[in-house]
Design a protein around this nucleic acid. Sequence first.
RNA 1: GCGCCUGUAGCUCAGGGGAUAGAGCAUCGGACUUCUAAUCCGAGUGCCGCAGGUUCGAUUCCUGCCAGGCGCGCCA
Length: 558
Amino acid sequence: MTVVAQQREQLRSVIREAIAAAQASGELTLNDVPEIGLEVPRETDHGDFASNIALVTAKSAKKPPREVAQIIVGHLSEEGFIEKVEIAGPGFINFFLSNEWLYNTLRVIETQGLQYGNSQYGQGEKILLEFVSANPVGPMNVVNARAAAVGDTLARLFRAVGYTVGTEFYVNDAGNQADVFARSLEARYQQLSNPDYPFPDDGYPGDYVAELAAVLQNEQPDLLELPLEERLAFCKRWGTDQMVEMQKADLKNYGVEFDLWFRERDLHAAGALEDVIGYLRERGYLFEAEDALWFKSTAFGDDKDRVIVKSDGSYTYVTADIAYHHDKLKRGYTKLIDIWGPDHHGYIGRMVAAIQALGYAEDTLEVLILQYVALLRDGQQVKMSKRAGEFITMQDLVDEVGKDAARFFFLNRSPESHLDFDLDLAVEQSSENPVFYVQYAHARIASILRQAGEMGVSIPTTGQVDLGLLQHDSEIALLKQLAALPEEILMAAVQREPHRLTRYALDLASLFHSFYAHCHILGERPELRDARLSLVQGVQTVLKKVLFTLGVDAPEQM
RNA sequence: GCGCCUGUAGCUCAGGGGAUAGAGCAUCGGACUUCUAAUCCGAGUGCCGCAGGUUCGAUUCCUGCCAGGCGCGCCA
């Protein structure tokens, strides 16, 4: 249990006893006592913890909230850890506690290190997180970059709260787009020896296809001797493999590594589509109409039924995707989370239907939809056009602003919000740039610890110092923020809201910079100096932990 | 037409059934013989899109409307 949770439980039982005593004395008559809410107020004036119990129970007590609060407070037992109790506003009971629990936070951080903030909340559940899954026919875009940042940090959050997590990138290397890509590549190859060779109307125009063709010619100079069909098959396999390797490298450079790159073609090769069709047929969810085979997804709330096998005998995209999700479930995952772009939201209904048709609960599949990203330069939206070749790829973005800024900016917004990405701000090396602001806090602490070493001051453990010397407002505020980390991590994971963490990091950095301006460390008398060194070390550990979870570097100096 | 997302300070965005709605930027004014001034301190700013409803209490929940973005294929 976390320090905050422990403190909350302790207070809760004191309140519960007070209510019981008040009831016994006849001053309070409640039909039932609800769960006692205790929040950590934003305003320090409102104490360490505040309860709205009097507001909630006022109705059943048939008394005004403030009067209920007065009665409860009157029956609170004397406790050493409670310094002051106030009734405020419409009837809140505010508790001011002694600082001991805050000092204890520092001891816990020291013991747990980078494990601090972790929990066992998700134990027993296996989550499969699928994200990015960009087609292996071209470079990744900025929405892919957003998905990569959000997915990767969610995976780190899930692991932190005890889930078993697998991350996967689904490679659509068997569909129409892969065929178009193969024809494009083949045409570029032909053009190397015959510049007039026609390029397909629907082909991919990017230069990368021609560059790839040159590599291919080097590796396979005799390719044109193969019959057309074999040649295209080779281009498809080899070309998509090349693209996957590029995507892998780009993502690694971005701090994202997947547990598994799942190939659609492997599903086809293993007969998984036929298998899942057979399975759905047995269960009575398929029917034939208009020369095609349909999945009766409307039986599970989808808008319309979906074609599974087209009239020409080929499969649709959804067929392979159903087989893929079936495969995930057969591998023992209890929860599937997919992160998709905004253009796929209409796809949710059919996939959720498919999951149910396969015999799983509706909420087994959860789909997170990201919204679009607009890039701003000089305050103007950067216009992108694939056709005109004006297109900023994920790699362009990372080259321009760096991995840390890119990830932090994407994670700094709630995932379902449209995002304006300010390219000028992202490269700015000042406090205006939030990622620098946070990293600087970490580097500043590293610098203090380095200088302490140079001065011959050894870094103390919490057991060697008098933490009670930490009394300054800025020190108390820092300690409270450190104590809040475990609940922040849990909430960010449970609500799938990684932006809570960037916010937390910014707040912590801000509190540290303020502390730094108000409190000196190395020049102080040894007792105070050591207590502050302990504090600063705790802050550094937590900053490192949060930055790691965001996938952002924690520099020792800047 | 139906569906999803968004609408909060000049700008970019948090928040969320309750206490005086927050942060950064921008604007203005201060602080460096002192551990990194890549920092800190102080000041002003709000029909929380509009209209109803539920509630002791709504910016938050519900309904309708308005505005912006996106989606509704035997494409992926």
